[in-house]
Design a protein around this nucleic acid. Structure first.
Ligand code: ZN
Length: 308
DNA sequence: CGACTCACCTGCGTGC
DNA sequence: TGCACGCAGGTGAGTC
């Protein structure tokens, strides 16, 4: 689930709660969710929380780091001691009092939005539990595609995933984006921009949103884009992801209500994603949903023409 | 190397 | 109700 804006929101949230805290113990409930020796981080202080694309890196005081990738259904939830039931947050949400901040003083949640955000933890989807000096960090992951991986801090940049990542759109020039796109001139543009070695950070939501904003049909061949369209697409990628980061990504407060229904975040932000059947905000044409490279894809057939 | 397909897992909504 | 099926905010492996 989580794309760059959600992961960045988690990074910022966890900075508030667990930076400079010590890890006391780690409990692993699913072996495939935790790679490497957990004991090496026992007693260690978290000295930095970094993000590369959709991956988070926790650096510890002994030269060890832990990479966390949430993939499709990962969540990171922090609860101060005494807040394991999630009750306070649930009450706050039910009272409609969740617009003041992304988190209160006692808990924070981010990642794949489910009612685990408000439920008693640990639960069936809890794969790893970190006991810190001030509370508990839960790594939940319904589909088990995500992972936590221990490695040396000095080896982070050599990690097979990290080292292949392209720049994020804010650091990338049009020339470099253009060059990376050129490697895939015979592929459709949507799967091309989902490739993290072409540009880092976009996932299924923000790819659809960026293509809509740049008025490019997702099935256009990459090689058919003009220089102007390439430039517009890069700007659109920055714009849609920055807007999401600025509004706090998809944290529980804005994303899922206590009853499990979707909150107002996507409805407010999304122009096309999960809006099939609704009118385009730009031209009024009905948004459609198709399948592109195996992924559900949303677009306005009037604003995004396949053939120019 | 690039373009595709499929695998990895669990759970939910849909339709018979 | 039971069950088959499609689908899901990601990435890696395998094939041609
Ligand atoms: Zn339109």
């Amino acid at each position: 689930m989580p794309e760059l804006p959600e992961v960045e929101t988690i990074r910022r949230g966890l900075d508030q709660f667990i930076l400079r805290k010590h890890v006391q113990t780690v409990q692993v409930f699913c072996d495939k969710s935790f790679i490497g020796p957990k004991e090496v981080i026992f007693g260690q202080e978290i000295i930095a929380i970094r993000r590369f694309g959709k991956a988070l890196i926790f650096d510890f005081s002994n030269g060890v780091s832990m990479m966390v990738h949430l993939r499709m259904t990962g969540q990171l939830i922090f609860r101060a001691f005494g807040e394991e039931s999630g009750k306070d947050y649930r009450e706050m949400i039910e009272a409609g009092d969740f617009k003041t901040s992304l988190y209160d003083e006692k808990s924070f949640a981010g990642g794949h939005p489910t009612d685990s955000f408000f439920s008693e933890l640990p639960n069936k989807q809890t794969r790893v539990l970190f006991t810190l000096e001030n509370g508990t960090l839960y790594f939940n992951d319904q589909r088990k595609f995500g992972f936590c991986k221990v490695l040396e801090t000095s080896e982070v940049m050599q990690d097979s995933f990290i080292k292949k990542l392209a720049k994020e759109p804010w650091q990338m020039s049009v020339a470099e984006f253009s060059k990376n796109l050129a490697r895939h001139k015979n592929a459709e543009i949507k799967p091309t921009i989902l490739d993290q070695t072409v540009i880092a950070g976009l996932g299924n939501i923000y790819a659809d949103e960026a293509l809509f904003l740049a008025k490019i049909h997702p099935e256009r061949l990459t090689g058919s884009l003009s220089e102007t369209e390439i430039s517009d697409l890069l700007e659109a990628a920055k714009s849609v992801m920055q807007a999401s980061i600025d509004s706090g990504g998809s944290t529980m407060a804005t994303y899922v209500k206590a009853d499990g229904t979707r909150g107002d975040y996507l409805q407010k932000f999304a122009q096309v994603f999960r809006r099939e059947g609704e009118p385009c905000n730009r031209c009024g044409t009905e948004i459609i949903k198709i399948k592109v490279a195996g992924r559900g894809t949303h677009l306005c057939p009037h604003c995004q023409k396949k053939i120019l």
